[in-house]
């Protein structure tokens, strides 16, 4: 093993993992950071969720002020993408086609 694995000091001289223990977590305020971090992620996505929930209501007002067909001529010209217009078998077919075609695409 020692012939394969480089020693710690070869590792750019950086500090590396050593001795286990909860004191590392306490010293770094780990629990505080983890809870705060997760909380911020939740708050951000909850805001987005709230915004999305309110968006249809805003769209109703927008639609009265400036109908999409007039305000967005490019949108009107393009093909409709309304899911509700399609029956479930078509949605299923699209789902399967997406499932098949996405195989091998770059991912995050």
């Amino acid at each position: 093993m020692s012939t394969v694995f480089a020693s710690d000091d070869q590792f750019h001289g950086e500090s590396t993992a050593s001795e286990y223990g909860f004191h590392h977590i306490w010293d770094a305020n780990g629990f505080e950071l983890a809870i705060t971090g997760l909380g911020i992620v939740f708050v951000a996505l909850a805001f987005i969720s709230l915004f999305i929930s309110l968006l249809p209501h805003a769209m109703t007002i927008f639609e009265k002020l400036a109908p999409e067909s007039e305000a967005l001529p490019h949108a009107a010209a393009s093909a409709p993408t309304t899911v509700r217009e399609l029956d479930s078998s078509v949605v299923a077919a699209i789902g399967y086609a997406l499932h098949t075609s996405h195989r091998g695409k770059p991912k995050t």
Partner: peptide, 25 residues
């Protein structure tokens, strides 16, 4: 959308796990 937030629990628990194992913050 909230499910995308819930899955990030893995990030922060692993952060704690790495601290426990002696990695720097």
């Amino acid at each position: 959308v909230l499910l995308g937030a819930a899955a990030q629990v893995g990030v922060f628990l692993t952060f704690l796990g790495a601290l426990f194992l002696g990695f720097s913050p």
